[in-house]
Design a protein around this nucleic acid. Structure first.
Lengths: 229, 229
DNA sequence: AGATGATATACTGTATACAAAATAGATATT
DNA sequence: AATATCTATTTTGTATACAGTATATCATCT
């Protein structure tokens, strides 16, 4: 039978919409959100907006300072902490993926890497980012741990905000594909410990790269500022 | 100056209250929660109750099945998955605690272990559980990672439900104190890798113990049931 | 100008009202 | 007895109303 479509309740739609707008940077970190305003903007009442706020609060995307709701403004410290958490979670994911992955799943994952190579040749940044995400998400899926998946989805959006906020432009390290391949090799020979280790090192390097971008950017700024005076 | 006290809004109070009642088992897994009922029980309106629901939903304590809210009913699979996540997170916590812990913090943690020994001698179960929790929470605090702390608080309550639901009585393995000591040693000599490894093994054993309790219990049941027919 | 006070406005938290949908009971039909 | 139909009730989702608090604006006084 055709499953009849049922639209999400407003609070759910508003939740998703606000989440998307925050991640896109359409609503900026630090910006204060006022339920009354959002309600009238969206042409709905305050109740569903407030319920959406509560969900976003739990996600860490909104912060509640004595009733005043604003978008989470990450610090460099937050970014580092989130990367550490990510290391812990994705290492475990790689560990279990190495144990659980089937032949066809390995096939599928290797395809992602081949596409990535092509995207790099084409210098198609959008595609490179999408395929990088796909690689990491796949491994989490193949770990066959739903609780882990939920956690990672949450972390990912917080790290996303960090990237958007803390550094202006984030160019992935050019060694990332080689690292993906070494993770893949560990997975394909079903060596959990190795896969976990490689994943850990990979994210560690990504974090280092993130920090370097931050430091570099701030040096640029201070030079520019000195020039201005 | 005295900071003037400001009571939490109702939705926050209700959130905490429901969370506590779910963790205590006062509200049972699978039980359906009806905002109207809870509102009138607590003598408040539906709005704050619904907002509390949204928060609990994000925590995973409540599940929303097409608008019908009920308490999360974990399966054995959920429990295993959550333990895996916990391994990933607490191993990272131990890693950073080993790097960051100060002398007085080590002193403080060793005190917890001494108290635990005493509590075991006194066979004070409540105290043993509290001190065990204290040990794990301390290490997370000493890792100085707030994001990690938030995640772990969340995981902990989910695992709590698993323990309450899936197995009737959970007796901690009697080797747990020795394991805590070996984690402590790794922390005190500031060896991150070793601390992470020891923590991983410790939680792995705890999980094994949990599974064994489950299997044992189910065998008992099936024997009892056969007897009944 | 700077401090003080009065007034208006905006915002949050909560209660209540109402409509649509789901559910359960009761009654009728085959 | 099983099925179908109707009705009453419950429950969810949303809108609106209102009170208390915070914030901003402006006038007043020194």
């Amino acid at each position: 039978m055709h499953p009849v479509k049922r639209v999400d309740p407003l609070y759910q739609q508003i939740y998703k919409r606000l989440e998307a707008e925050i991640l896109e940077g359409k609503i900026m970190p630090g910006e204060r959100l006022i339920d009354t305003k959002i309600a009238s903007d969206l042409g709905v009442s305050r109740s569903p907006v407030r319920e959406a706020f509560r969900k976003l609060e739990r996600d860490g995307l909104l912060v509640n300072d004595e009733g005043n709701i604003s978008v989470f403004t990450p610090t460099l410290q937050d970014a580092k902490e989130l990367y550490q958490v990510r290391i812990g979670l994705e290492a475990i994911a790689a560990y279990w993926a190495a144990k659980n992955m089937k032949e066809d799943e390995l096939e599928c994952l290797s395809q992602v890497l081949i596409w990535t190579e092509q995207a790099i040749e084409q210098k198609n940044t959008q595609k490179i980012i999408a395929l990088n995400t796909k690689f990491h998400e796949s491994i989490i899926t193949y770990s066959r741990n739903n609780q882990l998946k939920k956690m990672m989805d949450n972390i990912r959006s917080l790290i996303q905000i960090c990237r958007n906020t803390i550094i202006k432009q984030y160019n992935r390290s050019d060694s990332f594909l080689a690292e993906h391949y070494s993770i893949f090799r560990a997975l394909s020979i079903h060596e959990p410990e190795l896969a976990a280790k490689k994943m850990e090192q990979h994210i560690q390097r990504d974090m280092k790269h993130f920090e370097d971008s931050y430091i570099c950017q701030n040096q640029m700024e201070s030079i520019t500022n000195r020039g201005g005076f």
